[in-house]
Amino acid sequence: MGKQILCVDDSVTIRKLVKKALEPEGFEIIEAENGQVALDQCGKCEVSLCIVDVNMPVMDGFQFVEALKQKPEYSHIPVVFLTTESAAQKKQVGKELGVNGWIVKPFEAPSLAKVVKMLVKQ
């Protein structure tokens, strides 16, 4: 079984896209539709990377990362924001929260795979 990657996005389409981009590369994709669900998933799986949308209902990307980084057992997990938000201020917020970086939508499957492979050594 490949490394597990948690994809947090309220859009099922985006989650499918991420899945299609990464599964051929040997990663296993775990889906969550919002931050809350994602946090629950973290407890159940061995997550190597979180790919997180910013705008989500219930618990948004920022809140999720904040919660994630507060838990010592998860704080090491690298986090990538997958977002259309390009405002510098938001990026700054993300950086302060300790995310590794962001990928601006739309992305191409090979580029995403590249980024993921760089962050998760198989």
Partner: peptide, 13 residues
């Protein structure tokens, strides 16, 4: 631009 993972991945490759 700081944080742009796609760009940095591209650069690395």
């Amino acid at each position: 631009e700081d944080g742009d993972l796609l760009a940095v991945a591209e650069i690395r490759e």
